[in-house]
């Protein structure tokens, strides 16, 4: 009996570890990302084209206003939707782009099918207007690592991104930047 107890304990331990690792590998959720920035139920509809998007390590690609991505399988978890978005520019010219993230840390669980909507209240950016949250450094840095070709400024200089700067012709804030609330300039999470 004395020999059996440690042996049985070891077997239980192996079974538990094996079981949990199997679960982690097989657990899947199905996710779609929706560009909901033109949702007319919101107070404002900032014209952000989502040029790049990623959630839980899976890329969902470009999404024009009102468009929903293909359904993709992700490992369940909790994460922000990371994006590069262009202000009023469906062509996604880099000078009109800014790094944005969902305001909410979105969660999916095993077996769930979910569409995550990105819109005025559910986004944050580097130079936001009043009422929109500033993007935290961790999310900003992840976006820079994911999509270095956009050549965004460092986090300390995030408000110096071209899209955040005032429009030279009108003196208003950059188109992608901020003026979401006032409409005189940029995007809702971009600049001000």
């Amino acid at each position: 009996m004395r020999m059996l107890r440690p042996l049985s304990l070891a077997l239980v331990l192996v079974a538990v570890v094996g079981c949990s690792s199997d679960d982690d590998e097989s657990a899947k959720a199905t996710v779609q990302i929706m560009n909901d920035f033109n949702n007319e139920e919101m107070a404002y509809q900032p014209p952000w084209t989502i040029c790049e998007s990623s959630y839980l390590g899976v890329e969902f690609g470009k999404l024009e206003l009102g468009e929903t991505s293909d359904a993709k399988s992700v490992s369940p978890g909790l994460d922000y939707v990371l994006m590069v978005a262009a202000w009023d520019d469906p062509t996604c010219s880099p000078e009109n782009c800014l790094p944005l993230a969902s305001k909410n840390e979105e969660e999916v669980v095993d077996g769930q099918t979910r569409t995550i909507a990105l819109n005025m209240p559910n986004h944050q950016g580097p130079c936001p207007p009043e009422g929109v949250a500033p993007i935290p450094e961790a999310q900003y840095e992840r976006i820079l690592e994911l999509w270095p070709d956009y050549d965004f400024k460092s986090y300390d200089e995030r408000t110096e991104n071209t899209e955040c700067l005032p429009d030279e012709s009108s003196g208003a804030a950059g188109a992608g930047g901020a003026g979401g609330a006032s409409g005189d300039s940029g995007g809702a999470a971009g600049s001000e």
Binding site: E40, Y44, Q45, P47, D88, E130, A172, G183, D184
Partner: peptide
């Protein structure tokens, strides 16, 4: 009025921010 104002970005309703 500013001609560059984009549709969907004007709202005459006062906004109270938290």
């Amino acid at each position: 009025a500013d001609p560059e104002i984009l549709e969907g970005l004007t709202n005459a309703e006062p906004m109270w921010f938290n």
